[in-house]
């Protein structure tokens, strides 16, 4: 058990290291460097060279990487040339927006997937099943930005249910805050439902076909007990793992959704960094998000292990 945990964590660290190398390699490839960006295209070569040596850009790439890595480990992500601020400060300012819609949409997607997935499994090959299969296909084929635009027009503008753009921080009223992130979260959730719903349905079907379900029925228990005490308990392990993985896709999806709804989040920051080729900002953002996502997947994994009594009991035995 502890052995597994150790393996899992060291694998996560390894992957992160790889991601940082890949990111660094790709971004070093960008033509024109930071010095050029800061001074503009009409800078004299002497000035450029001076700035380069001041920033340490004239050193070999592995030394630059090493310095950057040392900084990353001590939570120093370097400086954005574009904003002239620390990357970590920029992230901190925008993180609440992105996390709000990511977490909120994860909750929406999870609830809908579990409810529909269970219903679809219990009422297999009925209308509920077909509707949720359709939803699954739709969710994975319709781009989030288009759903976003359509919902702005119909839910925001025509029905006036939600504000169509902007973010209200929770300090300025919790209801207004929820209202401002509701629509983006729902839009983001639609794309996530597909995979999750499929997993819930499959593992619920699997649970329903287990022998212990026969026994629960033979005892004449109520449908509620049968489905919630017996079936759901063993059906929730696989989906919980998927939730951890889906979170990664979801954080990536915020870029598009934040752009549609003009939200000042990390996604917008990434877009600016890509457009303006702000290497250190982009590097910091990519590494930050990847770390976050891997850490969450790891935490979910560990949490799921503790749900499973088999592992819990073995832990007590150790």
């Amino acid at each position: 058990m502890l052995n597994y945990l150790y393996k899992r964590i060291s694998h996560a660290v390894e992957v992160l290291l790889l991601v940082s190398i890949i990111t660094f390699a790709v971004l070093m490839w960008i033509p024109g460097d930071a010095a050029q960006l800061i001074l503009g295209s009409d800078a004299t070569p002497e000035k450029l060279a001076a700035l380069r040596s001041a920033l340490g850009l004239d050193r070999p790439w592995y030394l630059q990487y090493w310095d950057w890595l040392k900084g990353f480990v001590s939570f120093d992500l370097g400086k954005s040339y574009l904003f002239g601020q620390d990357v970590s400060t920029l992230i901190r300012q925008r993180l609440p927006v992105t996390m709000s819609i990511a977490v909120f949409s994860m909750i929406i997607a999870t609830v809908i997937s579990i409810v529909l997935g269970i219903l679809a499994a219990i009422r297999k090959n009925t209308a509920v099943d077909y509707v949720s299969t359709g939803l699954m296909q739709l969710g994975s084929s319709v781009p989030a930005f288009w759903i976003g635009m359509m919902s702005i027009v119909y839910l925001g503008l025509e029905l006036q249910w939600f504000p169509i753009a902007g973010y209200v921080p929770p300090e300025r009223g919790f209801v207004a805050y929820l209202n401002s992130i509701a629509l983006p979260s729902m839009v983001l959730a639609i794309g996530e439902i597909g995979m999750l719903l499929r997993t819930v349905r499959t593992s619920m079907l699997d649970a329903l076909s287990q022998d212990f379900m026969d026994m629960a029925r033979a005892k004449g228990l109520s449908s509620f007990t049968i489905y919630f005490k017996y079936a759901l308990r063993s059906a929730m392990i696989a989906p919980s793992n998927v939730i951890g993985l889906q979170f990664a896709k979801l954080v990536g999806g915020t870029v598009v959704v934040e752009s549609v709804f003009s939200l000042p989040g990390i996604g917008r920051l990434i877009l600016v960094a890509v457009e303006q080729r702000d290497v250190f900002l982009l590097l910091g953002l990519v590494m930050f998000i990847t770390t976050l996502v891997i850490a969450i997947a790891l935490l979910v994994d560990i949490a799921v292990m503790f749900i499973n009594p088999r592992i819990r009991v073995e832990m007590q035995g150790e």
Binding site: M215, A216, R217
Partner: peptide, 25 residues
Amino acid sequence: IKSLVGGRIGYVPQNTGFYLHPMIK
């Protein structure tokens, strides 16, 4: 029928299957 089966018939399944839920005491 459900309450008859649950209340007045006892069912002993084949031992080869797993008729007890593994995650419930």
